[in-house]
Design a protein around this nucleic acid. Structure first.
Length: 601
RNA sequence: GCCCUGGUAGUGUAGUGGCCUAUCAUGAAGCCCUGUCGAGGCUUCGACUCGGAUUCGAAUUCCGGCCAGGGCGCCA
């Protein structure tokens, strides 16, 4: 390799060295004589100089000058030169290589670049091209420091994680990508089998069943950086293919799994931030998270808990509350303390918040402002002094605090309350982007009931070990979530290792004996051969990295993501395939554009 | 499937019925310039997502399509 240094390497100590630099022409500045070129690569930027009055012996001034004329932006070039100190007063303190420059002795274009479709630099968000352009030319987008650093950060994270697993006796095992489609869960991506026409593999939504089989197979400490696939609509934190750090262990309970993950993250923290991460993470019950924060993935970087006041105000003759209560609804509210509101919420702002609440599924919002003497609002007259005093105590009200009260069906109040809490935190800038608050959400239910169909479903998945009798009214499951700054990073659980219990759970979920046998027969059979007690967790790597880097979208930490419609703008997938290929698979497309209506009729 | 927001030179934008042969920046091409650093100066080039409607007149208003993003549904 001819390259002696990257563009981020050179320092004062290298002055006088003969070097060969290779990289991309980022910016060039021709002063009509002396000429500067910022040579860039993934490690930094180094200034190259050509000075017609200071050409080292053995170099041809005209030849260099001629080659430099063909240095178009983003061309890959190679330059030999001598490292020298910059002229006094022209050092660039913003650049780590800014004390030195390379005086060119020989220049060569390795590969000329066309004019790039957008300017590559470390520009602010506001001048970044739209995402469509960035994804279409992703390789150029990755030349931007921000992108390449995100990918390098992701690598360091995974590398540290692997180091931890290695020293903790974990074994990485690859599980199949061509697997069986199961009716439960997300929609599968399907792969046709040529050898068995009319049959299909499914790409895995997670290695769940295989890792359980590995436990039965005695591989008692497994992990995998596993690609997973779900054919569902994208969101800013959801892609059709994504990466999970998948973990499973035998002869453990929930605490062992949580300890392992805390150890893992603390180790990674030490490696990438050189900081000690405080463990154990706080545990919050699912019920408390919902009632206090209105979400199962609370952002704990700020307070603003919801207070439940149904009992206190239930007798007040205030029509709106009475109407809600008569339908079994609840009343809850926030106290926006004067020290965090700082006069930023006036009448107009309150009206805007009321509109916001209406848009989010409640009829409206009642508010009160705390004064020296009590609570001030146009509805205060409906509440007795005793009720007001209890309210002040319950919600910890001090002078100038602002109270927002939400009334409605419990589910709506909690959900809207959670949404309002996030909005208030955003509006009042309560969120410190440099703080990371992990927490475990524990004591989860075993089942949840779909309010629309009334159908019972698994809260996490059907393989969770029950912690109470299954027919108990609020049956509990040994599952838990890891949350960070309002994002769910992953779910773990103790799994069922007894085939009879597993069957019972399937029955509770309304799965027939036949379906059980055809879809999960192999699992039930395997559990019957001395399956050890086991459990594990899967952490969403894309989400975790994007939260750690404060990115709005996981696309910013994935090298080649799909767009919102699941297309790759880079290679144009998904695409039609040749008819011969379909014939070989004995597949006929009935997509609207592929069929001739006349043929059908 | 639904809702919201947006679509103007290569890129990022201004433009709320006539002041638009459309603003500014950046870029590209050319010229000038010997210490800049996202160099500077001058010249040139380059755009209203598509279709329909309203109107004397539409980038601008209305309807529909297409495209992109955010969200709901969906994501055991």
């Amino acid at each position: 390799m001819r390259r002696t240094h990257t563009c981020g390497d050179l320092r004062s100590k290298d002055i006088g060295k003969k070097v060969c630099m290779q990289g991309w022409v980022r910016f060039s500045r021709d002063h009509g004589g002396v000429e500067f070129i910022d040579l860039a690569d993934s490690y930094g930027i180094t200034q190259l100089v050509f000075d017609p009055e200071d050409v080292p012996n053995g170099s041809d001034r005209n030849e260099i000058s001629e080659v430099l004329r063909s240095f178009t932006r983003e061309s890959a070039v190679s330059v030999d030169g001598i490292v020298r100190k910059r002229v006094k007063g022209t050092e660039d303190p913003k650049n780590k290589t800014g004390d030195v420059e390379v005086l060119i002795t020989k220049a060569e274009v390795l590969n000329r670049s066309k004019t790039p479709p957008f300017e590559i630099g470390d520009q602010k968000e506001s001048v970044l091209p739209g995402e469509e352009t960035r994804l279409r030319y992703r390789y150029l987008d990755i030349r931007r420091t921000e992108m390449s650093e995100a990918l390098r950060f992701r690598h360091r994270f995974l590398s540290a994680a692997r180091e931890y697993f290695d020293k903790s006796g974990f074994v990485e095992v690859e599980t199949p990508m061509l697997t069986k489609s199961t009716p439960e869960g997300a929609r599968d991506f399907i792969v046709p089998s040529r050898v068995h026409p009319g049959t299909f593999y499914a790409l895995p939504q997670s290695p769940q069943l295989f890792k359980q089989l590995l436990m039965i197979g005695s591989m008692d400490r497994y992990y995998q950086v596993a690609r997973c696939f779900r054919d569902e609509d994208s969101r800013s934190d959801r892609q059709p293919e994504f990466t999970q750090l998948d973990i499973e262990m035998s002869f453990v309970d929930m605490k062992d799994i949580q300890d392992t993950i805390e150890g893992l993250i603390a180790h990674v923290w030490k490696k990438i931030y050189s900081k000690k991460l405080k463990t154990p993470f706080p545990r919050i019950s699912f019920g408390e998270a919902m009632s206090k924060y209105g979400t199962d993935k609370p952002d704990l970087r700020y307070g603003l808990p919801m207070h439940h006041i149904t009992e206190i105000v239930k007798d007040a003759p205030y029509d709106i509350f009475q109407k809600v209560l008569s339908k079994g609804g609840v009343i809850a509210g926030f106290n926006v303390k004067s020290e965090i509101a700082k006069d930023r919420i006036g009448r107009n702002e309150i009206d805007r918040l009321i509109e916001f609440v209406k848009k989010n599924g409640l009829g409206g919002m009642t508010w009160m402002r705390a004064t020296k003497d009590g609570l001030d609002s146009n509805i205060v007259k409906y509440f007795t002094p005793d009720v007001l005093s209890k309210l002040r105590k319950k919600m910890d009200v001090k002078e100038n605090d602002l109270l927002f009260l939400l009334a409605g069906p419990e589910k709506n109040v909690l959900e809207t309350g959670g949404t309002l809490r996030r909005k208030l935190a955003d509006d009042l800038e309560l969120i410190d982007p440099d703080v990371f608050k992990f927490a475990w959400i524990v004591d989860c239910p075993m089942f949840e009931t779909d309010p629309a169909s009334g159908k019972k479903g698994a809260f996490h998945h059907p393989f969770v070990f029950p912690t109470t009798p299954l027919d108990a009214e609020n049956a509990g499951g040994a599952s838990f979530d890891l949350v960070l700054n309002g994002s769910e990073l992953g779910s773990g659980s103790q799994r069922i290792h007894d085939p009879e219990i597993q069957k019972e759970v399937f029955r509770m979920l309304g799965i027939s004996e036949e379906k059980m046998e055809s879809d999960f027969g192999f699992l039930l059979e395997a559990l019957g051969y001395g399956a050890p007690p086991h459990g594990g967790i899967a952490l969403g790597i894309d989400r975790m990295i994007s939260v750690l880097l404060n990115k709005e979208s996981i696309r910013d930490v994935i090298a080649f993501p799909k767009n919102k419609k699941g297309q790759s703008l880079l290679d144009g997938s998904p695409q039609k395939v040749d008819d011969e290929k379909l014939e070989e698979l004995q597949i006929l497309s009935i997509a609207i554009d592929d069929i001739n209506i006349g043929d059908i009729e």
